[in-house]
């Protein structure tokens, strides 16, 4: 078992033990993830860095059971994922898709979709938290920009009060202003509320921006891990060096 710090005092919130994912596509078997093990701890940011097609998003999908691992074990708060009701688990391990989907309705309807009993005050405070004015509540989602949609999706995710947030390439479609807003929000949630953020990215600059422990995944395997700055400036492995050479660093 690998971990960010051997002297870590607490139990991991999420533990992956030798997990693998194999898919059959067009009659041929393909290994998407091979023998992945890692411990994720509460109140920290993790970057999952690697080239496109490395299996990063597939890994996130296993963490909230949108897909099932074909081998190994994943535990959340010490209990295996299959011991949780999948719908309840997904509210505790929230997932933000790379391209956020908005249900065709108003911003308010999208937020109420998660919890119809939410009070107006809670909805407004949630919007303010993601830096959107309350006027947006009555707006149809079709008129929102990509950045605004991303923030509404983030608010919708946070309404569930997740313990872990899984973010799939969260800034890839955002401009600099929206990226830094999202970054600030994620950092606040991690340091303020003790949420664990696991962020998938193919861009080493984004991993540096979010900072935190960074896991380098290539061809479905965990190649190396370490603090973002250290891993990106001094990769220990040949495959790490070769990937990072072409990833903006």
């Amino acid at each position: 078992m690998t971990g960010p710090d051997s002297a870590e005092p607490q139990n991991p919130i999420l533990r992956a033990e030798n997990i693998s994912l194999e898919v059959i596509n067009g009659g041929t078997r393909k290994n998407i993830i091979t023998d992945f093990s890692f411990d994720f701890y509460r109140g920290k940011i993790y970057n999952i860095l690697g080239p496109s097609g490395a299996g990063k998003s597939s890994l996130l999908r296993l963490f909230n059971r949108l897909d099932e691992a074909t081998g190994g074990k994943i535990s959340f708060n010490g209990k295996e994922l299959n011991q949780y009701n999948p719908c309840r688990l997904r509210r505790r391990v929230g997932y933000l898709f790379q391209i956020p989907y908005m249900f065709p309705a108003t911003v308010k309807d999208n937020l109420l979709y998660v919890d119809p009993s939410l009070s107006d005050d809670t909805i407004v405070s949630m919007l303010l938290e993601v830096n959107l004015e309350p006027d947006y509540l009555a707006s149809n989602v079709e008129v929102l920009s990509v950045g605004e949609k991303q923030r509404v999706a983030m608010a919708r995710l946070l309404i569930m009060k997740p313990e872990i947030i899984l973010l799939d390439e969260p800034t890839s479609a955002l401009d600099e202003k929206n990226s830094s807003l999202l970054l600030k929000l994620v950092k606040n949630k991690v340091s303020g509320d003790g949420i664990t953020a696991i962020i998938v990215t193919h861009d080493s600059r984004q991993a540096l921006m979010f900072d935190g422990e960074t896991l380098l995944i290539i061809k479905g395997k965990l190649v190396e891990h370490g603090p973002a700055k250290q891993l990106i400036s001094h990769p220990k492995t040949e495959s790490g060096r070769s990937f990072l050479k072409g990833s903006g660093e």
Binding site: N64, L66, C87, R90, R91, Y95, F97, L157, M160
Partner: peptide, 8 residues
């Protein structure tokens, strides 16, 4: 899948 991810 968005709805599933939101616990539905």
């Amino acid at each position: 899948e968005t709805a599933l991810a939101l616990g539905k």
